[in-house]
Design a protein around this nucleic acid. Structure first.
Lengths: 165, 165
DNA sequence: GTGCCTGCAAAAAATTTGCAACAAC
DNA sequence: GTTGTTGCAAATTTTTTGCAGGCAC
């Protein structure tokens, strides 16, 4: 599946044990004079269990299965907290909703989005990253971060279209 | 400034004369059984005169200097129309507002966004495009479109930071 | 006990929509 | 005259905020 510098999805987690997302959150909370709460635990638990690219709406639904009294506002506030401590990354894939993605220990990557079924595949490619830095430098920029999204049709959607044209 | 396949901004408009944006809009309107109107004219006129990456809010302000009675809804509807006929491209650069960019006859390009001063520079790089297609194919995708945004600091902001650290 | 956190409901911000009047063809 | 378009205001959608009470430390 992978030919050259393409890391594909799922990234390697080999090597020294990293703090779990939950632990990292606790650390951040302690270091910043914030407080630990049942709601934050539940929301983080649900978020990391879901994986993928989660909208607040979806997350609320899931969290409420654990604890129906948790409010939307708290979910928004907690996701902002997770974003602040680098455990979640907010993404705007269109559709007007912010989606969050777990970032715990995973390296940088970009996205392939199927315009047919909505499937989102992650990938990383170093050559592209290198070229980006080069182009930026040419324009006098120093890149801090970037966003690359490829929209297209996945294998399944393409064969489906050929089958029923 | 340009070394290899980097087109820089501004793109070349040499060659056979292309229809002006206004003409293209009229053609689209005629072909689709739609109707021409004073409001559409004014909105398109203002939009193409502004250039750059315009928010609906900014556009409304400008359009109302030409014609104070034009409603926000009409501006939204017209921008959707311009997007449908390919004369404008909607962009989400963050900040929750959609910005539109004139696309008339200009080739595809991506964006460099300065996190210091907000400046937006356009660029195009064929090598990156080629690699994108390659990576996508590896994952079984056929790319239809993409979005690449590089966030960083422009020369000016970098020197400013060094001057006052 | 102090100060952060939560739930609720109201507020905001961006965009869409229903509808009657209106304009283009 | 028919049909698409406009303006207005109300509605939607997503996210934020004020505030009183609650919980963590």
């Amino acid at each position: 599946m992978n030919e050259t510098s393409d890391r594909g999805r799922g990234g390697g987690r080999g090597g020294a044990r990293e703090a779990s997302p939950t632990e990292a959150l606790c650390a951040y909370i302690a270091e910043n004079g914030l407080k630990h709460s049942r709601q934050r635990d539940r929301i983080a638990e649900a978020f990391f269990a879901m994986g993928g690219h989660v909208s607040v709406e979806e997350l609320v639904a899931r969290v409420r299965r654990l604890d129906p009294r948790i409010s939307v506002a708290t979910v928004y506030r907690t996701m902002k907290l997770l974003a602040d401590c680098g455990l979640a990354v907010p993404r705007q894939f269109g559709g007007g909703q912010t989606r969050y993605e777990a970032a715990a220990g995973r390296g940088h990557h970009d996205h392939l989005i199927c315009t047919g079924c909505g499937e989102i595949v992650e990938f990383a490619n170093e050559k592209i990253e290198t070229l980006q830095a080069l182009v930026a430098r040419r324009h006098g920029f120093e890149v801090e971060s970037h966003k690359l999204e490829l929209y297209g049709r996945c294998v399944r959607c393409r064969s489906a279209r050929e089958a029923t044209p």
